[in-house]
Design a protein around this nucleic acid. Sequence first.
DNA 1: TTTACTGCAAAACATTTGCAATGAG
DNA 2: CTCATTGCAAATGTTTTGCAGTAAA
Lengths: 143, 143
Amino acid sequence: MDEYMEQIRSSGRRLTRQRKLVLEILNDSQEHLDADMIYDRAKSVDPNIGLATVYRSLALLKEIGLVQEHRLGENHGHFEKTQPTPHHHFTCLKCGRVIEFEAPQVIEAAYKLCENEGLQVTEMHLHLSGYCSQCHEGKLNCE
Amino acid sequence: MDEYMEQIRSSGRRLTRQRKLVLEILNDSQEHLDADMIYDRAKSVDPNIGLATVYRSLALLKEIGLVQEHRLGENHGHFEKTQPTPHHHFTCLKCGRVIEFEAPQVIEAAYKLCENEGLQVTEMHLHLSGYCSQCHEGKLNCE
DNA sequence: TTTACTGCAAAACATTTGCAATGAG
DNA sequence: CTCATTGCAAATGTTTTGCAGTAAA
């Protein structure tokens, strides 16, 4: 955690109470929080924090690479602390559950493909949707 | 094209002038249009069409599966007619160009992985960003 | 004729920005 | 001290909704 704080400082930006708090909230949560959820949790610690500050902190943390933003089917962003191993997301269209999965082969294949075309890849998002095992039980398997 | 119109009808919805127009616009364009671009083009044919109708038509066409929505890094949707072969998108962070690419191995691998976990996949979005060949020329290759 | 669909204007969200006050370095 | 950062409120941009009128079936 402390090394993350240091990363903020060494990016030339100031390590403020608010930025620390946003990062801590993401660090403590294994879910994919949206800006409003982060704002709510932040307010319970620091009631004076503003939503704009949450957005600005998230933008900074993304810029530094400590945080990633994902679009999980809804039209607002979800945020999570950057994980050591890249992973991807599956959203159940019925229950809304988000399942994470690793897919090294997929990542590998996509990178190679792009590099062959002269593209320099800096970010990759794989998002699937459908029905999780609980939700598609009892449904026909056709389609 | 006519069979698409039929698909709207057979979904139990009405085949209106406006829905036809939105579908035609997407059919005629190889780009990834956003709602506003579609609205502009639609107005040039039918000046009375409303933006809300464009959104409602897009939602219907998505529901039927004739149209797909993608998030290409910006915070609004881009739409394209569903293609026969699934494909994916790369956005250049510098020039904004969107490059499409096919990746059967990637799709295959991701599907298999999910099915092994009991997930029924209905949709898949792979989005990469980085720098296209024109834009990363002259830059250092180290990250 | 019926009622799903449209256009409009207003509402609902999501996110960003201007600015005076504040606090990190 | 200094100026990057904050909180607030207002602006922006995207998408949705309520409703009376219109048109597809």
